[in-house]
Structure formats: C-alpha cells, structure tokens
Design a protein around this nucleic acid. Structure first.
Length: 886
RNA sequence: GGGCGUAUAGCUCAGCUGGGAGAGCGCUACCCUUACAAGGUAGAUGUCGGCGGUUCGAUCCCGUCUACGCCCACCA
C-alpha cells in the first residue's frame, strides 16, 4: 500500500506487462467454469499482409468484450485466432518486391521457387497485425492459432473439395467469368465492384448480306465487334422481322454472322439491334448458348486484343477501341456517338477493369447449399443482430450463381485434381496419388490453379476446431465448441464470408457454423466519411493507443457500438473517455488509503446505513442493465450505464458523502464505509473489465485478497436481490433534488462556494422531515449549509429569502437585505410559468374524456401524480411570492 | 432499375412494445473544495427533415415528398 499512485492516469504504465501476465498464466485458454456451458468465437482471420485499422479494432473489441464477459460469467470460453493467407494480396506484395529488388517477374521463377519466396516474406514480414491485436488486449487463445495455409487447413480444404467434387457439385466448365487482366486470373462475382464510368454509345452500321440494307447497332464497347458471332433482334420487332434468318456482315473483319431473333432483346433499348459477343459478355454468352453460336475469344490473358483481331492484334482494349472507331469512321459506318455513363466492373483488389471472358474454370454449384443456408436463418437456427441484416443475406442467397472457385494464382490451396498424362483420366484426391487409378501410369499432373481464398475461409469455424481430423477435433473440443456461439463481423463480408461459412458448414457437418451473428458498424471519420488513404482521414489505432491507452480506445469503440451501421469516430470522444478512465483511476486513489481498514466482506445488511444501501441499490440496477445489454450486443447501453453510475452516483455522491464519514466518523463507521466503498468499487471494475481490461486488472491487483486470482477470471457482477433497497433509493433521490435546488439558488445570486449559509426546509411529511434532519451533516458537505432548520408547513416562512420548491419540500435561504428582490421575483416567476405550463398540460389531459376512457390506468395514475406534484410546487412558489409582496 | 438504411441540441449519436425528448463532446458563468483542472457546481440550446393519415395522444405506427448514405443489378 505504500506505493505512489500518479495523480493522473498513465496508460503506458498501467497497461504494460498485463497482457503477458494473462497469457503466461494461460488465462486465455479454455477453462471449465461454473456454468458448465461453453462460449466460442472464431476470429475473422486478418490478412497476413494487413495492418490494424479501426475496423479491426472495433471487431476485436466487440469480440474480446464478449469473450471476457462470458469467461467471467463462468462459461468455458474459446476465442480462436488465425490469419488469412490472402491469396491475391500476398502474391501481389511479393511480386512487387521481386520486381523492385530483383527486377524479375513471377514467371521468371518456377512455381516452387516463387512459393518459397512468398513463405519467406510471410515469415519475415507477415502477421505484424498479430502483435497489434495483443496491444488491444485481445484475449484469444494463441495456442490454437491457425494460418489458413497451414498443413491442417490445407488438409481440411482438400477433404472438402474432394467431397464436393465426388458429389458432383464441383465441376469444370468453359464458362464466361470475370477476368482480371492485371491479376491474370478469374475472380468471383462477389469480388467485382461496379463503378460508374463515363463512356459513350457508339452507333455502328452492319451491312446485311446481299442487300443494301444496314442494321444499326449501339454499343459501349465497339472493339468487341471483332468477336461478334450474331446480330439479334426481338422476334416481335416489326422493324426487323423480315431480316431474321438473313446474314449480316461484321465490318472490319468481314465475318458473316446470322441475324437471329431472341426475346432478350429489348425493343425500347438502343436501336433494337444487339450485337452478340458470346465470348465477352455475360448476356451474349447466354444468347450464344441458346442459339448454338460459336464463341470467339478476342482477348489474351493480359487483356490485350489477340491474334483473332488481325491488324489490331496486340493493342490494349483502349487503343483497340480507338483504332476500330477510326477505321469505322473511314468506312462511314460510324453513325453517331452519344455520351453515356454506365457501370463497369472493377476488381476489388486490383482495381483493374474486369473483362468478361470465356475460360475454363472450376465452379461450385451452390443452388442447394444456398437454400439450406437461407432456411437455417429463416427458422432461427442462426440469428442476426441486428435482425435487418438477414435481408441482405437473403437477397444474395435467393438467386445464387455458381461460384467460380479457381484462381490462376500460385499462392493458395492448389486444386487437388489430377490428370493422367497417359489416359487423360481426371479425378480428385486428398493425398497426392502415385499412379493413375485407371491405367496405373505415374505420369500425373495436378491442376495448376488454386482455390479462391474464401473457399478455405468458408470452412474456417470448423477447421480451427480440428475438422476434419477426428483426433484433432477431440483435442480442440469440436464437440463442445461447435457450432460456435457468435460470429462478429462487419456487413461488408456478409456475402464473401458469412454466407459461405453457412453453406459449407451445413453441407459438410449438417450443422450451422454459429448460433448468432453480430454485425457491427463500419468505422468512419467524424463526418461519416469512409476512412481512406486518399482522403487522408484515417485514424491509426496504434497511435491512439499510444496517446490515450488501449482502454480509452476500447471504451470509445464499445460505447459507439450497438445496432448502428456506421460509427463516426471523433477523436475528441476518445479524449473524453480517456478522462473517464482517469476518473476511475482517481476514484481508486481516493479509496486507496482506506483499504486497510476495510473488511473483506460486507457487514450485516442491518448495519448498513442509508447511503450504503443506496449505492448498493444503484449498483444493482447498473449491473442488471449491463448484463442485459451485453447479452444483446448493446455495448453502447452497457457503456453508458456504467459511465453514468461511475460519474453520477459513485463519484458525485457516494464518494462525496463518504468524505465526512471517513474523516470524522467513529472507527466503526469508518470501517463500515471503507468496506462498502471497497466492495462497490471492486464490483465496478469487474463490471468494466470486458470494456477496459487493463486498468481494471491493474486496480484489481490492489483490491484483491491474497488468495484471490486475477480479475479476468473473477465473477461478473449480476443483479443481487439481497442488496436491493428501493426505499433508500427514493429517499436519496429526494435529497439529491433538494441539494441541487440549494446549489442552484446559491449560484443564482453568486454566493461563493466557500460561504456558509442557513437553509430552512418545510415539509408536510414527518418522515421526510425526519430524514432530512438526519442528513444534516451532508448538507454542509455538499452545499455548505452550516445551519439547517427543518420545520413542518405550519411554521411561517421567512420573508425576502431565496426560495425554491420540490413537490415535497420548500426550500428557503434567508438573506434579507442582501438579495436583489426583483431579480429573485423574476426568477421565481419564470419557474412558476414553467410549472404552470406543465400542470396545464397534465390537467388538460386528465380533463379529456377520451383520455380517461382509453388510456391505461397506470398512465392515468402517472399523469395524476405528476399533476399533483406540479400543483404542490406551484402552491409553494405562489405563497412565497405573496411573502415577497407580489 | 431494384432493395436497405439514415434524417433528433453547434458536433457525434441514444431514445425499449406510441404517454410530450436524453448522453458525450463542445459552449457559458463561477470555483485551484485535501481522489481527479484529464476536475467541480450551476446553466443555455431542439417547429425530433417537410406534408398528410391512424389515435384520446405520434420522435416512435402508416402513406407521401425531399436530402444524404450503402448494397445489389446484364439495359446493349
């Protein structure tokens, strides 16, 4: 007890060492608790290339708060951390590095060589984010850490793939996909972002063979005409009906193509004639299928025009477009150019313009899996918080398109499909086979593609718990922890990730992957703008932690998190909550010297005094609110309840009221008060621990007894009916009201804080009078009232005084000759008007027959009570005004 | 084009199943009161986006308009 406590809270000093202590003592590991229930969370694995940003911080804080809450409640908890190999992102980083340092391209290396480079990079630079999670206080179980490219994860992926392959859900097909020319890989629909681009409609004439007629088509992508294999019109279109079945000639390449009729063509749009490019347009691909049109690919992997394009071969799409237009102009086939803005797909990673392109890819048929997932949400086996997000999920799952799962990358899980070079047999296998099962040849080739990163992510909640290895599942407690309790994530990956986990888990294990899904807000800057490098409005969590401490940042994020979808973060708020942490710190400094006098248990309840019963009651209410809020993921409500209790109850009143007792009370009183202070404060920091683990654990070390363990595994406070004293609560509220009124009166005439005053109170209630008399000493401490006279209302009131009234008590401060009478009268008249207004409203309501007939009884009673109180107040003020001669 | 969401104090946001509005920050005044000036006490501020409707009563429910977000979508 002899150590010096700094006057202000110093986050660096307070927080340091605690994380290592928790970890070294194994407190993050699952431990059976008193509840006999489990609570598990799988951490959304951050990218190996990632740095902590505010979004992660919020995600982490929400999860950690839940885990700590449940751990303290006595659940056996596990929070499994991991890291994602982030196929595209990581490969790009290393490609850039190699380009810079060695002036080489990926293709200059063998696959094995390049993968070695990526692993080397990963081991050296990857995972910086993990230590940042620790700085935040994330109490995850590092012993169960998993990297998505670890052997075990790889086995899980292969196991799943083979199962799906053998059941026929995974198939290979020449299909039109989103091709990212920068990555030179296919990407899935979900990875395409549509952005508005200013382009143009080019109207082009196609000659009709053996005629002088021309068909006018409109397109935003004229260069794709080099791949046209038909022109389509609507079968009902009178303008073109007679041309159906004839042949059109594609200019520039002079290809003869059929003119076909297809209902897809809209009579109203464009010219009514549609050029059909099955190789490079999603709709045209479908039309092509219906009409068995040939497919001509005009682009190479890097997005340039290929050898099909004759003289345009080698040009980029952009240059090709210009050249094509130039030539059309020369042939007088370019009719007009209209400005037009339209949506163009971009790769969400590479930002490159996506080219629809036919290529051979692997697909997962998700039809059935999607409806299984939908059903599981509809019948409440999984529940979204807030519930509204399930619509977002449904909108996607309700019209599923097969998922393109192959990527033409090296970094990732290589597709476990093998080809026999001898007999062309193709099959999938979990372990690399030695021989072809058909012809026994040992000349085998594995499919070169890797799987979409989200394929492995989709298995994540299972993989991290040992699936599908029976031994490992046993060790990691799959039985106990799966389905996981809650998934905490942002709405931006509902499609990418949440939906995929649902599908995979239901397919593989016939179980949902999690019971609840808490979707938290996206963190923006204080004006609601997305934080981004280009706007330069990002707030770096690590800088905040350095400046204000992890606890202040955590509390800020938690206080801003409920069912909202945006959290607009104002750094000033963090400062405000840092002050709150400081408040806690100083409350402790106040209690600190008295700890030695405190007992370790509360005295008999009958011995507690009024204020002690009151603070225990208030704490009880707070604990109730916090528990409820935490169960519903209302971190905002939990935080504000604690915040209000600490400031408005514990510090402002209980500590203030305790000063007299502690300094001037009898030894027994002092000891009792010290005991209650300690008892309550211990509870408060326990209640706060999920939000602000560092300072609370630090303070706990001063407050715990020798045989008690760390706060992180202490009981979480809950409502305790034995410590609930409603009557004391009500009385105390009256006293607070009276004291506030006195302070108010003092302020109104600038009575200096140090100046002592006399106050006369009048009340009709004997009980109230008695109570107020008993509180006399507190009036001195809280409002510098050195003389308090309490009388019943038969006693005449002092003249020319400061006067105020509550519904039960009249308050007079006699200051004859000192006060400005007119000023006081004006103040009282203002108050009078306010109360009159209130009363009028209530009376009007009560007089309304419809109200009396229809409103519920309790509402009527409430209004009547309010009217009553207003009436009494009004009478008191009126009477006082009479005394003033008004 | 469809869908979702948001409009409440100067700023950022709460407001539970309808009974007449709250918090934090900021602001004003006065205080270095022996836990804390990262503090204390007191205070000011709102046609609860507009217009209709339901109801005894609407910030809350319904309709509609306006503004701003976000998501989805193949209008060539």
């Amino acid at each position: 007890m002899s150590e010096q406590l700094s006057k202000t809270y110093d986050p660096q000093a307070v927080e340091s060492g605690l994380y290592d202590m928790w970890e070294q003592k194994g407190l993050f590991r699952p431990q059976p608790g008193k509840k006999q229930e489990t609570f598990s969370i799988t951490m959304p694995p951050p990218n190996v290339t990632g740095k902590l940003h505010m979004g992660h911080a919020l995600d982490t804080v929400a999860q950690d708060a839940l885990i700590r809450y449940k751990r303290m409640k006595g659940f056996e908890t596990i929070w499994v951390p991991g890291m994602d190999h982030a196929g595209i992102a990581t490969q790009s980083v290393v490609e850039k590095q190699v380009a810079k340092e060695e002036k080489k391209r990926r293709q200059d290396f063998s696959r094995e060589q390049f993968l070695e480079k990526i692993w080397a990079w990963k081991n050296e630079y990857g995972g910086a984010i993990l230590s940042q999670l620790k700085a935040l206080g994330a109490s995850c179980d590092w012993d169960n850490f998993l990297f998505t490219m670890d052997d075990h994860a790889n086995k899980a992926v292969k196991h799943c793939f083979v199962k799906l392959y053998n059941s026929g859900l995974i198939y290979q097909s020449d299909y039109i996909v989103n091709w990212d020319p920068k990555l030179q890989s296919a990407i899935s629909d979900a990875e395409v972002e549509h952005k508005e681009i200013k382009g143009a409609f080019y109207h082009i004439k196609y000659p009709v063979k053996d005629s002088d007629q021309m068909l006018e088509i409109a397109t935003t992508r004229p260069e794709t005409m080099l791949g046209d294999t038909a022109v389509a019109v609507n079968p009902e279109d009178e303008r073109f009906k007679h041309l159906v079945g004839k042949t059109a000639i594609i200019p520039l390449c002079n290809r003869e193509v059929p003119i076909i009729a297809d209902t897809y063509v809209d009579l109203e749009v464009g010219t009514g004639c549609l050029k059909v490019t099955p190789g490079h347009d999603f709709n045209d691909f479908e039309i092509g299928r219906r009409h068995k049109l040939p497919i001509i690919k005009i682009l190479s992997k890097d997005g340039r025009l290929n050898e099909e394009c004759g003289k345009y071969h080698g040009l980029t799409v952009d240059k090709g477009r210009k050249a094509v237009l130039e030539d059309l102009k020369g042939l007088e086939l370019l009719v007009k150019v209209e400005k037009h803005t339209h949506q163009v797909g971009h790769g969400d990673r590479s930002k490159a313009i996506i080219e629809p392109m036919v290529s051979k890819q692997w697909f997962l048929n998700v039809n059935e899996m999607a409806s299984e997932a939908t059903e599981a949400v509809r019948d409440d086996r999984m529940r979204f918080y807030p519930k509204g997000w399930e619509n977002t999920l449904f909108s996607w799952l309700d019209n599923p398109r097969d998922w393109c799962i192959s990527r033409q990358l090296w970094w990732g899980h290589q597709i476990p499909v093998y080809y026999c070079d001898q007999c062309q047999h193709q099959w999938a296998a979990e372990d690399r086979p030695e021989n072809c099962p058909k012809c026994q040849s040992d000349q085998l080739t594995q499919d070169p593609d890797v799987l979409d990163t989200w394929f492995s992510s989709g298995l994540w909640p299972m993989t991290t718990l040992g699936w599908p290895d029976p031994q490992m599942m046993k060790e990691k407690g799959f039985e106990r922890f799966f389905p996981t309790s809650v998934l905490v994530t942002g709405f931006d990956i509902i499609f990418f990730w949440v939906a995929r986990m649902m599908m995979m888990s239901l397919k593989m294990e016939k179980q949902v992957p999690f019971d609840k899904i808490y979707i938290h807000a996206i963190v923006n800057d204080k004006h609601g703008k997305k934080m981004s490098k280009s706007s330069n409005n990002g707030i770096d969590p690590m800088e905040i932690i350095e400046q204000y401490g992890a606890d202040a940042m955590r509390f800020t994020l938690a206080a801003g998190s409920g069912y909202n979808r945006n959290l607009n973060l104002d750094p000033q708020r963090i400062g405000g909550y840092r002050n709150f942490i400081n408040k806690i710190w100083n409350a402790f400094r106040f209690i600190h010297p008295f700890l030695e006098q405190a007992d370790s248990t509360l005295p008999k309840l009958s011995e507690l005094d009024h204020h002690e019963r009151w603070i225990l009651t208030e704490f009880n209410q707070t604990a109730k609110v916090v528990n409820h809020a935490m169960d519903e993921f209302r971190f905002d409500d939990a935080c504000s309840a604690i915040y209000a209790f600490v400031y408005n109850k514990f510090c402002s009143w209980f500590i203030e009221l305790s000063k007299g007792v502690l300094h001037e009370g009898s030894p027994a009183e002092t000891q009792r008060r010290a005991t209650v202070l300690k008892f309550t404060f211990r509870k408060v920091i326990a209640l706060l621990h999920p939000m602000t683990p560092f300072i609370t654990e630090n303070l706990w070390s001063h407050l715990k007894s020798d045989d008690e363990r760390e706060l992180i595994i202490q009981d979480f406070p809950e409502f305790d009916a034995n410590l609930d004293f409603p009557e004391d609560g009500q009385q105390m509220n009256h006293m607070v009201e009276v004291i506030t009124a006195i302070r108010n009166l003092r302020a109104s005439v600038d009575i200096k804080p140090k100046e002592e005053i006399t106050v006369q109170l009048f009340s009709d209630s004997a009980k109230m009078s008695e109570y107020l008399k008993a509180q006399q000493i507190n009036f001195y401490q809280l409002a510098k009232v050195d003389q308090l006279i309490v009388s019943d209302k038969s006693v005449s009131r002092p003249k020319k005084s400061l006067m105020a009234a509550t519904d039960q008590v009249e308050i007079f401060i006699p200051l004859e000759g000192v006060i400005d009478l007119d000023q006081q009268i004006a103040r009282m008249k203002k108050e009078l008007a306010k109360v009159e207004g209130e009363l009028g409203r209530h009376q009007k309501k009560l007089a309304n027959k419809n109200f009396a007939d229809n409103a519920p009884n309790e509402v009527i009673a409430e209004v009547r009570a309010k009217a009553d109180a207003a009436q009494k107040k009004l009478a008191a003020i009126n009477q006082a005004l009479l005394l003033f001669g008004v």
